[in-house]
Design a protein around this nucleic acid. Structure first.
Length: 854
RNA sequence: GCCCAGGUGGCGUAAUUGGUAAACGCGGCGGCUUGAGGAGCCGUGCCUUUAUAGGCGUGCGGGUUCGAGUCCCGCCCUGGGCACCA
C-alpha cells in the first residue's frame, strides 16, 4: 500500500457523509465538507458534462477567428502516462481554454502515433497482435487523458495505424517517389543488431541504438531514401520566418550544417583525371602539401591502373570499410592511411607535385570525399602529416597575438617550431597573395583558379538523406512493387492503402528482412505497368512517417477522397502554437517541416498558406522522479496521474504541474509540494463557500486592485508559459482574500473564478454553477484588467545612503524629487545616518527610491 | 574540443530587465487557535544581540556604477546538444 492510500483511509469518512467509520470524523462533519471538496465526485461530474455538451468541439469555418493549438501526439506504450507526460498536455490545455474564453474557435486535437518498435517487440515476446496491443494501449491512454480534464476535441481523434489514415501516409510516399525524392539504393547503414533494424542517423546516439542501446554496426543494405537534402536550404531559410526558441533554431541550423567554400580541382600527373576537393579555407591552398581521399571514394577505381602498391591500398580500404563509424571516431588522434604509390597530384596554386593518400579520417558522405591537407592550419591534417612526415608550410599569420591558440601543438620542423593555427589572418608564403587578409584572399584565389576552371564556389550541408526503410512488421508498408522487367513501380493510387497483412511470426528473418518477406500470397502481385509477375516491397516505413503530416489530418480527419480538404486546411492551418519535446528537434520537427514544404510545393497544401507548418514552437522540460532521478519503471519511481488524482484530485494535479517550476526546465516531482497546492484549492473552496453564503455586491478597493493585478499577471504569464508565477499570483490573491474575507464583491469573485478556471476547470465549474449559472464557465469572456485600477496610490519609497537601504517611507505615488527629499530628510533614521555629513548628490528614481550620496 | 542553457535560503524557485534579494510553495523550528489536530492562522536567510540595532549574504576573482543576482573581463562547476563535417 502506498502512503497516500493510508491517508485516503482517513479521509474516506469525511468524503462519504453517513458512512463515518471513525468517531473522530463525526463531530465536525459539516464543517469538513464545507472546508474541503470531494474531487472525485466534482471532477467526474464536469468531465461528463463537457463530453455531453461537446463544448470543446472545433467548428470548421466558424466565423470566429481560429486558433490551432497542438501538442505532440504520444506513442501509446504499454506503460501508460506518468505525471511527466501530462505536463505539456496540461500546459497547452490551459492555453486552449484561455483562447476559447478570448473568443477564438480553438482546434485542440489528440491522436496516436501508434506504429513502432515497442509494440512489435511485445508481440514477438507474447504473440499478441500489435493491433490488439495498440487498441488496448490507446484506450488506456485516452482514459488517462480524459481523467485529467483535457479539453481535446475527441471527434477528431486519429490513429496512424488506421488504414484510413496510413492510406495517405503511403500516398505521400508515392508523390515523393514521383517527384524523384524517394529512391532505393545500396548503402552502408547503421544496423542495430538488437532491434535487427536499420537506423536513421538521427536515431544513433553516440554509436549506439537510441532504443535498445546496442552498439550500432555498419552494413550494406538496399534502402529506401528520402531526399531531404534537396530541402536543406529551404529548411534553413524557413527558420527565419518562425517563432521557435532560439536554441531550437540553433540545433536545426547546426544539424543542417551549411558551409560555404570552394571546390578545387587537383590534376594528376601523366593523366587526365582531376581530383575534386572541397574546402572552406581556399586561403590556405599554398600550404596544401598533400591530398587525401576517403576510402569509399569512387575515383580510386579510376586511379588503380597507375597505383604501384595496389595490394596495400586495397587491404587498407577493406579494413576501413569494416570499421564502424564509432571505431573511426574513437581513433581520432591516431590517423591512419596509405599512400598511393606512383601517383602525384599538382597543387594548382603552387604548381608543385604533392602526394595522394587514402585515409579514413576523410569521410565519403561530406563534401567531395576528398580534401587537401594543410597541416600548418588544421589539427587533423597536422596529426596526419606528423605520422607520415609530410612537409608543414605555414601560410597564415594571426593578426593579433591574442588570436593565437592557447594550447598550441608544437613541432620542430626545419629548425623552427610551428603550431597549428586554425584561425584567420594574413597570408604568408603564398606568392602574389602575401599580405592579404583571409576573407579577401578566398575571393581572389578563387577568381585566380576559376580562370582555368580549376576552382568554383560551392556549398555543402551536413544533412544527409533520410533512410526511410525498416525491415520490420509494425509500420506502414511501402507501396512499391518490384518488376523484373520494369524495375520499381509505384502502387496505383486507387489501390491504396496497401494493408498490412496478418503474420504469425513477428521476428525479422535471419537475413534481416521484414517478417512480411515470408508471406507469399501478399508479396505476389502484378506489375502495375506490364501486368507481369512482380513482388511487393516488404520494408515498412519508420515510426516518423505517420507523424510527418498528422497536424494536417486533424483539420479533416475523416476525408476519404483527399488527404484533407484544402478549404479546411486554409481555415485551420498553420498551427498557431506547437509544443513538444526538445528531443524531437532534429527528428520529428525537421522531418515534418520537410514533408509540409514538399506538400506545399506540389500544391496539396494551399499556396496561400505559408511554407512553414508551425507558427510558434515551444518545448517543455522533463519531469524527474523525486530526488531528481529520471522516472523509470526499472527504478520504481514512476508517479502516475491516477495516484495523484486518487489522493488529491485532478485540479490539484493540474495546478501542481503548472506550479512546480519553470515549464521549460527539467524539474523533480515533490509529493509534499502537491499537498501545498491542495491546501490552496481547499482555501479557495472554503472562501468561495463563505462567499456564496453571504455574497457582497462590491469589493474593497484594495482587493479589487489586487485582483486586477492578478488578472494582468495571469494573462501575461500564460502567454509566456510562465505558469508557475501565474499560479503563485493566484495564490497571492487568495491570501489577500483570506485577510479580507468579506472584501470581495460578486463581479470580482466571478473574475477570479474565470482566471483560475484554465488551471482548475472542475472546481471553478462547480462554483460557477453554485452561483446559479447553467452554462459552462468556459463560455465566459476572459476578463480584462483595468489599467487605472492596478495603479498603486501609495508606494514604499526606498531611502538609501550611498546605495545602502536605510529606511522605507510610505508616500503618494508619482511624488516628485523635491517633495520626496523633504520627507526623507525628516526621517529620524536618515537623520541619524547622515549626521553632519554633506549630501554630494541625490539620485531619485520615481516611485522606487531616493539615494543620497555623501 | 565546439555550441546552447544554467549556478540565488535546508528544498522547488521569484525578482517590473540596473533600483527593497528571496514573492509563492515545501520542510524544520517556535507560537496562536482548538476538547482534540489530521484543519486553520502568525513568525522564521545567516551571524552578533532579549528586542532594538548592526554586519554578512545570489558559484569564484576582478571591473563599471550613487547602486549589480542583473552589465563587462577572466575562471570554476552542472545539465543538454554536436563532434575527424574539411
Amino acid at each position: 500500500m502506498e502512503p497516500g492510500e493510508i491517508f485516503n483511509l482517513f479521509l474516506a469518512p469525511i468524503f462519504l457523509p453517513g458512512k463515518t467509520g471513525f468517531c473522530f470524523a463525526k463531530k465536525s462533519k459539516n464543517d469538513k465538507i464545507r472546508n474541503m471538496y470531494n474531487p472525485q465526485k466534482v471532477e467526474r461530474k464536469w468531465q461528463r458534462f463537457w463530453e455531453r455538451e461537446g463544448i470543446f468541439r472545433a467548428k470548421d469555418f466558424s466565423k470566429k477567428p481560429k486558433k490551432y493549438i497542438l501538442v505532440e501526439f504520444p506513442y501509446p506504450s504499454g506503460e501508460g502516462l506518468h505525471v511527466g507526460h501530462c505536463r505539456p498536455y496540461i500546459a497547452l490545455d490551459v492555453v486552449a481554454r484561455k483562447r476559447r474564453m478570448e473568443g477564438f474557435n480553438v482546434l485542440f486535437p489528440m491522436g496516436w502515433d501508434a506504429f513502432g518498435l515497442p509494440t512489435e517487440n511485445y508481440a514477438i515476446k507474447t504473440g499478441v497482435h500489435p493491433r490488439i496491443a495498440t487498441r488496448k494501449n490507446t484506450a488506456f491512454f485516452k482514459r488517462q487523458q480524459k481523467s485529467i480534464g483535457l479539453s481535446f476535441d475527441w471527434t477528431r481523434e486519429i490513429n496512424t495505424t488506421d488504414p484510413a489514415y496510413y492510406k495517405w501516409t503511403q500516398w505521400i510516399f508515392l508523390q515523393l517517389f514521383k517527384k524523384g525524392l524517394a529512391y532505393k539504393t545500396k548503402m552502408p547503414i547503421n544496423w542495430c543488431p538488437g532491434c535487427k533494424i536499420g537506423l536513421a542517423n538521427e536515431e544513433v546516439v553516440e554509436g549506439h541504438c537510441e532504443r535498445c542501446g546496442k552498439k550500432v554496426e555498419r552494413k550494406e543494405k538496399e534502402q529506401w531514401m528520402l531526399k531531404i537534402t534537396r530541402y536543406a536550404e529551404k529548411l534553413l531559410k524557413g527558420l527565419d520566418k518562425v517563432d521557435y526558441p532560439e536554441r531550437v533554431k540553433t540545433l536545426q541550423r547546426d544539424w543542417i550544417g551549411k558551409s560555404e567554400g570552394n571546390e578545387i580541382k587537383f590534376p594528376i600527373t601523366n593523366s587526365q583525371i582531376l581530383i575534386n576537393v572541397f574546402t572552406t579555407r581556399i586561403d590556405t591552398i599554398f600550404g596544401a602539401t598533400y591530398l587525401v581521399l576517403a576510402p569509399e571514394n569512387p575515383i580510386i577505381e579510376e586511379l588503380k591502373p597507375q597505383v604501384k602498391n595496389l595490394k596495400a591500398v586495397e587491404r587498407y580500404i577493406e579494413k576501413a570499410k569494416r570499421k564502424t563509424e564509432r571505431e573511426r571516431i574513437s581513433e581520432v588522434k591516431e590517423k591512419t592511411g596509405v599512400r598511393l604509390g606512383g601517383i602525384k597530384a599538382i597543387n594548382p596554386a603552387t604548381g608543385k607535385e604533392i602526394p595522394i593518400f587514402v585515409a579514413d579520417y576523410v569521410l565519403i558522405h561530406y563534401g567531395t570525399g576528398a580534401i587537401m591537407g594543410v597541416p600548418a592550419h588544421d589539427e587533423r591534417d597536422f596529426d596526419f602529416a606528423r605520422t607520415y612526415n609530410l612537409p608543414i608550410i605555414e601560410v597564415i599569420k594571426a593578426d593579433k597575438e591574442k588570436d593565437l591558440p592557447k594550447r598550441a601543438s608544437l613541432v620542430v620542423s626545419g629548425g623552427g617550431s610551428q603550431r597549428v593555427y586554425e584561425g584567420e589572418g594574413v597570408l604568408i608564403n603564398s606568392g602574389r597573395f602575401n599580405g592579404m587578409g583571409s576573407a579577401k584572399a578566398r575571393e581572389r584565389i578563387n577568381d585566380f583558379l576559376a580562370k582555368n576552371g580549376m576552382a568554383e564556389k560551392a556549398v555543402y550541408y551536413k544533412l544527409r538523406d533520410w533512410i526511410f526503410s525498416r525491415q520490420r512488421y509494425w509500420g506502414e508498408p511501402i507501396p512499391m512493387i518490384k518488376c523484373e522487367k520494369c524495375s520499381w513501380q509505384p502502387v496505383a493510387e486507387k489501390d491504396l492503402p496497401v494493408k498490412l497483412p496478418n503474420v504469425k511470426e513477428y521476428k525479422p528473418t535471419e537475413k534481416g528482412e521484414s517478417p512480411l518477406a515470408k508471406i507469399e500470397y501478399w508479396i505476389k502481385t502484378k506489375c502495375p505497368r506490364c501486368q507481369g509477375e512482380a513482388k511487393r516491397e516488404t520494408d515498412v516505413m519508420p515510426n516518423w512517417a505517420g507523424s510527418n503530416w498528422y497536424y494536417l489530418r486533424y483539420c479533416d480527419p475523416q476525408n476519404a477522397q483527399k488527404l484533407a480538404d484544402p478549404k479546411k486546411l486554409l481555415y485551420w492551418m498553420p498551427v498557431d502554437w506547437y509544443n513538444g519535446g526538445m528531443e524531437h528537434t532534429t527528428l520529428h520537427l525537421l522531418y515534418s517541416r520537410f514533408i509540409y514544404k514538399f506538400l506545399w510545393d506540389i500544391g496539396i497544401v494551399p499556396k496561400s498558406l505559408g511554407s512553414e507548418p508551425y507558427k510558434k514552437r515551444t518545448s517543455h522540460g522533463i519531469v524527474l522522479g523525486e530526488g531528481g532521478i529520471k522516472m523509470s519503471k526499472s527504478r520504481g519511481n514512476v508517479i502516475t496521474p491516477e495516484r495523484v488524482i486518487r489522493q488529491y484530485g485532478t485540479d490539484t494535479l493540474r495546478t501542481y504541474e503548472m506550479f512546480m517550476g519553470p515549464f521549460i526546465q527539467a524539474i523533480a516531482w515533490d509529493t509534499k509540494g502537491v499537498r501545498g497546492v491542495k491546501r490552496f484549492l481547499d482555501k479557495v473552496w472554503r472562501l468561495s463557500n463563505q462567499f456564496l453564503r453571504s455574497s457582497k455586491p462590491k469589493s474593497s478597493p484594495n482587493l479589487k486592485k489586487i485582483l486586477h493585478q492578478t488578472i494582468k499577471k495571469v494573462s501575461e504569464d500564460i502567454e509566456n508559459m510562465k505558469f508557475n508565477t501565474a499560479v503563485s499570483s493566484l495564490m497571492e490573491f487568495s491570501n489577500a482574500w483570506q485577510e479580507n474575507k468579506k472584501g470581495l464583491g460578486k463581479t470580482d469573485f466571478k473574475n477570479f473564478l474565470k482566471i483560475l478556471s484554465p488551471f482548475v476547470p472542475h472546481v471553478t465549474e462547480e462554483l460557477w454553477q453554485k452561483l446559479g449559472y447553467k452554462r459552462s464557465i468556459f463560455f465566459q469572456k476572459w476578463p480584462k484588467y483595468d489599467e487605472r485600477l492596478i495603479k498603486e496610490e501609495k508606494i514604499t519609497l526606498i531611502v538609501q545612503i550611498n546605495g545602502k537601504v536605510r529606511d522605507k517611507i510610505e508616500v503618494e505615488s508619482g511624488i516628485f524629487q523635491s517633495e520626496a527629499k523633504k520627507i526623507a530628510l525628516k526621517s529620524p533614521k536618515i537623520k541619524k545616518w547622515l549626521g553632519a555629513k554633506k549630501i554630494k548628490k541625490t539620485i531619485f528614481v520615481k516611485d522606487k527610491l531616493i539615494n543620497f550620496v555623501v
